[in-house]
């Protein structure tokens, strides 16, 4: 296999150095691959993504993007390094208009290019165009998720990381969001996402990592893991939605 797009190697990370939540996790994401992370509460799923995004302090281990080290790179530089991240909550600026939200997402681009890409995202997400001059607080949960994804895509990232994109959405909205993500992967974007719905995660992704207590437990092709009784006992058994 050629150099993977994202390599996380033995990463230890947490909000406080003395209390690491992620305790040595290793994972890989290839170009245009969809990888999901599942696991019980407190497994360190979200924290790992935040560590890659530079929001949570990495105390040891390495993160590489296409072979180049990005560990401890300031968060705002990652947008230029072709990584985009969509947080689980508060993922849009509610006091800004839809248009301004997208403009913020395009802040690393030249003005003309920003406008061009914004016009393209309005084509891809007609709902957003309709509300472009409205404050984002008027959007529903699903629309906010769309806006957050549209915003993240403006920088044309090679890797899109999402934290529980289906949380709080209606089943209809979940399938729409997932269809969008699938289309993105077909278009060449790699996706790494945390998903609390293990069944949906296994169904949609190429590969899945199961975390428990801040460490890797099982990983492999999603189709195989869906049949694995061990996965069922770790995750589905411990079950329950996050928060």
């Amino acid at each position: 296999m050629s150099t993977p797009l994202l390599e996380v190697e033995d990463v230890v990370a947490g909000y406080r150095p003395d209390l690491p939540i992620v305790q040595g996790i290793t994972l890989k994401v290839a170009e245009a691959e969809m990888v999901t992370i599942i696991g019980p509460n407190g497994a360190g799923k979200s924290t790992l993504i935040k560590a890659v995004a530079g929001i949570v302090q990495v105390s040891s281990g390495r993160v590489r993007l296409a072979g180049a080290e990005i560990t401890r790179l300031p968060t705002h530089r990652l947008a230029q390094a072709a990584i985009a991240y969509v947080p689980q909550t508060a993922n849009v600026f509610t006091t800004l208009t839809i248009d301004e939200n997208l403009l913020v997402g395009a802040s690393t681009l030249a003005k003309g290019e920003a406008r061009r890409r914004m016009d393209r995202s309005y084509e891809n997400f007609p709902v957003l165009k309709e509300y472009r001059q409205k404050k984002a607080k008027v959007l529903s949960g699903g629309q906010r998720q769309m806006l957050a994804v549209a915003r993240a895509l403006l920088t044309e990232p090679r890797l899109l990381m999402l934290d529980e994109p289906s949380a709080g959405l209606s089943p209809l909205m979940v399938s729409e969001v997932f269809q969008r993500l699938k289309a993105l992967v077909e278009g060449g974007v790699a996706i790494l996402m945390v998903e609390q719905n293990a069944k949906a995660a296994l169904a949609i992704s190429h590969r899945t990592y199961v975390f428990a207590e801040g460490r890797n437990r099982i990983d492999g092709p999603s189709a195989a893991l869906a049949q694995d009784p061990q996965v069922a006992s770790i995750y589905l058994g411990a079950g329950g939605r996050k928060r």
Partner: peptide, 15 residues
């Protein structure tokens, strides 16, 4: 204005 509302999201957006 973005920073005033949500500093972390502002950084994620490349600010």
């Amino acid at each position: 204005r973005a920073l005033a509302e949500n500093p972390e999201l502002a950084r994620v957006n490349g600010i």
